[in-house]
Design a protein around this nucleic acid. Sequence first.
DNA 1: AAACCTATTGTACCGAAGGGCAATTTCCTA
DNA 2: TAGGAAATTGCCCTTCGGTACAATAGGTTT
Lengths: 202, 202
Amino acid sequence: MSDSVILITASPALADYWADSLGLQDAVRLADLAALNRHGVAADSLVLVDLAQQHVEEQDIVQACRHCRVLALSSQPSDAEGLYWLQCGAVGYAHAMSTGDLLQQMFETVAAGGTWVGRSIMQQLCARFGSRLPVTPASPLAAKLSERELAVVEALRQGKANKEIARLLDISERTVKAHLTSVFQKFGVEDRLQLLLKLTGG
Amino acid sequence: MSDSVILITASPALADYWADSLGLQDAVRLADLAALNRHGVAADSLVLVDLAQQHVEEQDIVQACRHCRVLALSSQPSDAEGLYWLQCGAVGYAHAMSTGDLLQQMFETVAAGGTWVGRSIMQQLCARFGSRLPVTPASPLAAKLSERELAVVEALRQGKANKEIARLLDISERTVKAHLTSVFQKFGVEDRLQLLLKLTGG
DNA sequence: AAACCTATTGTACCGAAGGGCAATTTCCTA
DNA sequence: TAGGAAATTGCCCTTCGGTACAATAGGTTT
């Protein structure tokens, strides 16, 4: 079981709803994430956060998620918002006014060490995961690019600069440029930015 | 909830264990995924698959996951295996001999439309993003940008150069640079390439 | 009114990116 | 064995990207 539960919302009514649904009348209540980080709480606490509040700093989210299990609850859920919080380290994301059953469900799931993620978001997460996989010799890219060019492209995909790529592959920066020039031609683009867009389907 | 439940395992004992733990004495039992795809089942069925069996074709997995909610259960769980199945579309992954409580937990989670993912796997899934967060108007980060900065970012998204952006917005190239410098700071990146990666999520 | 924020632009500097021209090496094929 | 493709690198040049140091103007907040 979790050491303690913290409810974070500016709305007393919402906190009441959560507490009633989950049987947590004695849960700690705070106004915002900043307060959580300022005062600190027992490590590994379970934190329910109402996303209605504005001005949530990314740093606050990351810090909170590092120390506690954060369950993000939005009054207007969207996949984008959910992905954002999950990437910051939240272990669950759902509608703030979910039914008691669903809240109970999520609560038990995360309490058991799992992560509660809606179907749509999970699919997006996996889709991105797939698109991030390194280019394999089996992909259509390989047909056009040489082995070395592929290596350079892979590094470029990570946002690396020519100098970094050179160090990475243990070749001179000039050679990196040579490979890139070749790749640009094969793909009909003018620079690394357009290449990246072409690769990632932007 | 689910239209029907299918248990896929070559081990009758394991099928019994699942059925007992979840109170599904009347669940359909099949030997392997191929059988599921061959005969077909009610769409959106909940499928528990024992991963002990060898030679599971990726195509079979993907096809099964497209039509049903697949809960992958391994006798020797590993993050790599879990990630593989989740990528294929599974909605859950855990130890095949998990405690009845945990099985029940997972079962209810996926029945509720969620996804059961262990902590370790979730972290890896998120780690694949690195520090790159997809930013949409729904994300808190986008709210940090001014109207003008958003316009510049939008153009950058198209792979446009500073000079083009300047013409597009009818401002000087210097102003474009000013806006970009501001955006870089707000997003914690060093150049347009990293910004793009952060925006598109790779 | 003073303080402050945003948008705008200029000049200037520096490093990164991209490419032209040319040379060398290695490895594979006709 | 000669020819060719791929990889490698150097030198030099141009353009682009990013920033430091300012300055001006309009709008908002206190």
